[in-house]
Amino acid sequence: MTARPPALGASDKLTFLLSLIPYLMDHDSVTVAEVAGHFGVPAERVREAVRLIAVSGIPGETHQYLDGDLFDIHWDEFEEHDRITLTHLVAIDDSPRFSAREAAALIAGLQYLSSLPENADRDAVASLMAKLSRGASGTPTQLAVSSPDSDAAMSVIQSAGRSSVQVAFDYLNARGEHEHRFVDPLRLESVDNDWYLRGWCHLRQAPRTFRLDRMSELRTTTEPVGSHDAGLVLPDTLFQASDDDLSVVIELPASALVLLADYAPARATTPAGGDRVRTTLRVAHYHGLKRLVAGLAGLVTVVEPAEARQAVADWAAAGAARYDDPSGEA
């Protein structure tokens, strides 16, 4: 005699049904055995649930259950081949859906998240993107987040993150110095078009941020990451001050301060006339100001020290000289 599966309470049956219906909607046709294996329940329990679904629905305007008010399945496939295929859905089709534009925006965000090393389960992300596409009220715009130039470096870092090993590379810092680093990769982040690795630097014995386009000879190692990872909390801001940093006073519109959140969170400001304010940044090297000023062109003015102003002025003059030189060489 075949043992019957243990009886389920009403709440357990409801939970199983609420999980089973979305699963069946995501699979055009699936066998009873596949469903049973997915949910870890006996096959007979799946069959009972499918039979219950087929007599469930929402009464129409007549308050009676007519054919169009019930779920339906392909009965021949179910009874002869033990295969489940939903042929009619009720209520769920009428639930609110993302618009095509909303779904496209969410899919783009998921594509970005899938590039981060901590999100190693790409299959789960791909499945969620497929669900968003199917569940939208219209066909989402076909788009893709463009791959950065540092794609190869990101691939190496992601591989190291999945294997929990260190990466090694030669690094050109802001002062123009080359150093060999061994780093536990923790996170990849972007600011505009630049990508950064945040990790535990074994040379400095502290968290550090590295620009991917300043790395060379990047490779994974066989050295495991340190045990500090479990308790290490990365700051919310990308760039962190150090004792060796240099102070620079800049002036900009008060409304643009939010654009400096990664560089100078919660910095004190002083009025500079009109809607402009002055604040102080800490940078590793005055030449690092060039990218900041270029990214906020026309908004930021370097006030002091003189060396910082000169570094930015020389850089701007070199760029302008290219427009005056017919050969294109400064």
Rank of each mutant, 00 (worst) to 15 (best):
247 S>M: 07
223 E>R: 08
270 T>W: 02
253 P>L: 02
214 R>C: 14
274 G>M: 06
252 L>A: 06
235 P>W: 04
255 S>M: 07
246 L>E: 12
240 Q>S: 10
273 G>I: 05
223 E>L: 15
211 R>H: 07
241 A>M: 06
268 A>W: 00
264 A>W: 02
235 P>V: 05
242 S>W: 01
250 I>M: 02
214 R>K: 12
215 M>R: 06
234 L>S: 05
250 I>V: 15
267 R>T: 14
261 A>K: 06
253 P>Y: 04
216 S>Q: 12
253 P>T: 03
239 F>N: 03
210 F>W: 00
243 D>M: 02
251 E>W: 00
214 R>D: 06
229 D>N: 10
273 G>D: 03
216 S>D: 15
274 G>Y: 02
272 A>D: 12
255 S>V: 14
270 T>Y: 01
237 T>C: 10
233 V>S: 09
251 E>A: 10
232 L>A: 12
258 V>A: 12
248 V>T: 09
264 A>T: 03
236 D>H: 05
236 D>A: 13
247 S>K: 10
231 G>T: 12
270 T>E: 14
217 E>P: 01
221 T>N: 04
256 A>N: 08
247 S>W: 00
243 D>F: 03
248 V>H: 03
227 S>D: 15
261 A>E: 13
245 D>Y: 04
266 A>C: 09
214 R>M: 07
223 E>N: 07
253 P>S: 08
262 D>N: 13
226 G>K: 01
255 S>C: 08
222 T>S: 13
